[in-house]
Design a binder for these strands. Structure first.
Length: 158
DNA sequence: GCCAACGTTGGC
DNA sequence: GCCAACGTTGGC
């Protein structure tokens, strides 16, 4: 069953263009340190799921492109790396606390869809990313929301 | 840079 | 197990 997701990234740290430029256009989605987001990766995300790549803390904020899950969640290596911001001294190698899926770029939206446009779209009124105070960095997206965002972005909906 | 909203931590 | 304090997120 294919599902849909939205992931947030600060483009100053890792933008959709960075994903397009990455080897094989893939990256491990490491550094997630929120239990709800981790649980989505562990229990929800499957290879092939569609992903909206959202730029947060940016000018403008909004959806820049689409990606897909290309590998299921494994232990996030940065939790064991003392030099990493994501280092977690409480996490044990035999029972890792934090996980990371792998994402692969699919394509940039033809038109970047700003948050303002998402908020203005009645079909997206219930979408998590437009809700006030919603800061989850990995969010489930309904098929209808997925189709609507792709249409706003000028991509054909497969 | 501000600050509202939220998640996590830790004292009790 | 409660909840105040704290740190972080992220829009503006």
């Amino acid at each position: 069953m294919v599902r849909y997701w939205l992931v947030k990234s600060e483009p100053g740290t890792f933008s959709f263009q960075d994903l397009l430029d990455a080897p094989k256009q893939r990256t491990r989605w490491e550094g997630i340190r929120n239990y709800t987001a981790r649980n989505f990766m562990r229990d929800g995300m499957s290879v092939g799921d569609g992903v909206l790549f959202y730029h947060s803390s940016a000018e403008p904020t909004g959806v820049a492109g689409t990606a897909r899950v290309c590998a299921a969640a494994v232990a996030d290596p940065t939790q064991f790396d003392k030099r990493s911001d994501g280092y977690d001294p409480k996490s044990k190698r035999e029972a890792p606390t934090w996980l990371a899926v792998e994402l692969e770029a699919v394509r940039a939206l033809k038109n970047f869809v700003p948050l303002e446009r998402l908020k203005a779209e009645p079909a997206l009124a219930d979408m998590l990313v437009v809700q006030r105070g919603q800061r989850l960095s990995i969010q489930p997206v309904t098929e209808r929301e997925w189709r609507t965002v792709l249409a706003l972005g000028g991509l054909p909906v497969r």
